Simulated scan of single mutants.
Amino acid sequence: MNLEAELAEAAAHVCQKRGLKLVRELGSGAFKRAYLVQSAETEFALKLAPIIGPVDRLIRETDALLGCAHPNIASLFEAFPDHYNGKPLWVAIEQFIPGGTLEDRLSKGRLSREQTLNLARPLAGVLQHLFERRLVHRDIKPANILFAADGQTPVLTDFGIVRVLDLPSLTREFLAFGPGTPAYAAPEQLNNEKNLIDWRTDQFELAIVLSECVLGRHPFMLPDQNIHSAIIEVASKREVPQESRDQLEELGMSMLIRALSPWPVGRYRQPHDFIAALAD
């Protein structure tokens, strides 16, 4: 039985034990599946993932989310280990965000400056909230930005590789790459420079997403290049290409150029500085 079918059966098993109604699958990642479930009139997202190795990272994700209370962060209600067919699973029950993903929205075309800023300001507020709790999301990308029922309010989800700055890193020193999605990762992630990772890593990732919203492409990927070239440019700590800088300035989004600095010290120093730049 493949993983998709096995997790679907496990989801039905969890729902039966918990008195939940399994409605449909919502989506999937490399090793995770999410399902829409109901309890009475309330809808939730049920997420299942096989437990492979230590559960330290799963516990950190749970603790980090339970410590957050922000309108633009998906709420976690419960998370616990379980078993199905003798195999260990991690189960999470989260807030259901019904408005689709930013990834889906961008597949239909780029956004206007106003639409992008309406995303940017609340998400920068999320970075402030995480900064105050010494958390770094490390996986900000269009697929992890959902929209609330109004279709306008952005909600950040998937804290699976959250970094808790006050706890020892779970990433091995010898690894060439750190956790993250390469197309949206900051240089310090791509090079596994753990000592450089802080809230400014999330700032860089969010700036990549916002640049993609207005440019219709990755800011380090020129029209004749592919995404792999862009990742190499970022990992090599190159400055934003002049063509992208010019376009961002023309579109009134020049504040993103500083957030895309290859070195953390060149980015906005504090979240409120970034928030203020987005407000101008």
Rank of each mutant, 00 (worst) to 15 (best):
L3Q: 13
A10C: 09
A11K: 06
L22A: 06
L26D: 06
L26H: 05
G29F: 03
F31G: 12
A34S: 14
S39W: 11
A40L: 13
E41A: 15
T42R: 15
L48D: 09
A49D: 10
A49Q: 13
I51F: 07
P54W: 05
R57S: 15
R57N: 13
R57Q: 15
L58V: 12
E61Y: 06
D63K: 13
L65H: 03
G67K: 08
H70V: 06
P71A: 08
P71L: 06
N72F: 02
N72L: 06
I73D: 02
A74K: 03
A74Q: 09
L76F: 02
F77R: 13
H83E: 15
K87F: 06
P88H: 11
L89I: 08
I93A: 05
P98Q: 06
P98M: 07
P98L: 09
T101P: 01
L102Q: 04
D104P: 02
L106D: 03
G109L: 05
N118W: 05
L119V: 06
A120Q: 00
P122Q: 03
L123W: 01
V126W: 00
H129A: 12
E132Y: 04
V136W: 00
V136G: 05
K141M: 04
L146C: 07
F147H: 10
A148R: 10
A149W: 02
F159W: 14
R172K: 15
E173G: 10
F174C: 13
F177P: 09
A183V: 06
Q189I: 07
E193T: 10
N195D: 14
N195W: 07
W199H: 15
R200V: 11
D202C: 09
E205I: 04
I208K: 00
I208T: 04
S211F: 02
E212T: 13
E212S: 10
L215W: 01
H218P: 02
P219T: 02
Q225C: 05
N226M: 08
N226I: 09
N226C: 08
S229K: 10
I232Q: 12
V234Y: 01
A235M: 08
A235N: 02
K237V: 03
E239Q: 14
E239Y: 07
P241L: 09
E243V: 14
S244Y: 00
Q247T: 11
Q247L: 14
E249D: 09
L251A: 08
A259V: 05
S261W: 00
P262W: 00
W263K: 14
G266S: 09
G266E: 02
R267K: 08
Y268R: 02
Q270F: 11
P271F: 01
P271L: 03
P271K: 03
P271Y: 01
I275Y: 03
L278R: 04
